[in-house]
Amino acid sequence: ILLCGTGIGVSIAANKVKGAYAACIHDVYQAQRAELSNNANIITMGSQIIGINLAKELVKEYLSCTFDTHSRSMPKVQRIINYENDLISA
């Protein structure tokens, strides 16, 4: 879980690390979809965008979700992983 003013800067920085999949979230739906549709292993939030109570709720929601490798989102996630691996090996 990473925080900065908007959540965007730390998301960009985190996504530079191989194997890091950061999603910037600011509402419950994004918190759910970060994991369920995108298999994000990092969430980022903006301290100037949301308050502490919402941040706690979003963390709780994100942690309650589990990515299903048999979901219809898996091919998309696999394409992202393959793209990353192609960049590394090039």
Score class of each variant (00 low, 15 high):
Cys4Gln: 10
Arg33Gln: 15
Ile52Ser: 15
Gly51Asn: 10
His26Met: 13
Lys16Met: 14
Ala14Ser: 11
Gln30Thr: 09
Leu63Asn: 07
Asn38Met: 09
Thr6Asp: 02
Ala34Met: 12
Gly5Ser: 13
Ala34Asn: 04
Gly9Cys: 08
Ala34Asp: 03
Ile52Lys: 15
Val59Ser: 13
Gly46Ile: 04
Ile1Tyr: 01
Arg33Met: 15
Lys60Arg: 08
Asn38Ser: 13
Glu84Phe: 00
Ala22Asp: 02
Glu57Gln: 11
Ala14Tyr: 02
Ile80Pro: 02
Gly9Asn: 06
Gly7Val: 04
Ala20Met: 06
Ser37Val: 04
Arg33Leu: 13
Leu63Gln: 07
Cys65Asn: 09
Ser64Cys: 09
Ile43Thr: 04
Leu3Cys: 10
Val77Lys: 07
Ala31Asp: 03
Thr44Val: 07
Tyr29Gly: 12
Tyr62Asn: 01
Tyr62Pro: 01
Ile12Lys: 12
Leu36Thr: 04
Cys24Asn: 14
Lys60Tyr: 01
Leu63Cys: 07
Leu36Glu: 10
Ala55Asp: 06
Val77His: 05
Asn53Glu: 14
Glu61Ser: 05
Glu61Gln: 10
Tyr62Trp: 10
Asp27Pro: 03
Asp68Thr: 01
Ala22Phe: 01
Glu61Ala: 12
Ile1Gln: 08
Gln48Asp: 13
Tyr29Asp: 15
Asp27Ile: 01
Thr69Ala: 11
Asp86Cys: 10
Ile43Tyr: 04
Ile52Thr: 08
Leu63Arg: 12
Ala22Arg: 04
Val59Ile: 15
Lys60Gly: 05
Leu3Lys: 11
Val17Ile: 15
Glu35Met: 11
Ile12Met: 15
Ala31Arg: 06
Asp27Ser: 05
Ala55Asn: 06
Glu61Arg: 08
Met45Gly: 06
Lys76Met: 10
Glu35Arg: 09
Gly9Glu: 05
Ile12Leu: 15
Glu57Trp: 00
Ile8Leu: 14
Leu36Lys: 13
Ser64Tyr: 01
Ser73Trp: 03
Asp27Gly: 08
Thr66Gln: 14
Leu87Glu: 06
Ala34His: 01
Gln78Met: 14
Tyr62Met: 04
His70Gly: 09
Asn15Thr: 01
Thr44Pro: 08
Gly7Pro: 05
Ser47Lys: 12
Glu61Lys: 13
Gln78Ala: 12
Phe67Pro: 00
Val77Asp: 08
Ala23Ile: 03
Ser71Ala: 03
Asp27Phe: 05
Asp86His: 07
Asn82Gln: 07
Met74Arg: 00
Asp68Gln: 06
Asn85Gly: 03
Ala22Glu: 02
Ile81Cys: 10
Asn38Phe: 07
Lys56Cys: 09
Thr69Cys: 12
Ile50Lys: 13
Ile52Tyr: 10
Thr6Met: 08
Leu3Pro: 01
Ile42Leu: 15
Asn53Val: 13
Thr6Val: 06
His26Val: 07
Thr6Ser: 15
Gly46Trp: 04
Lys16Ala: 14
Ile8Glu: 11
Ala13Asn: 02
Ala20Phe: 05
Asn39Asp: 13
Gln78Lys: 14
Asn82Thr: 03
Val59His: 09
Leu58Arg: 05
Ile8Gln: 08
Lys18Asn: 05
Gln32Gly: 09
Glu84Ile: 03
Glu84Arg: 11
Ile8Cys: 11
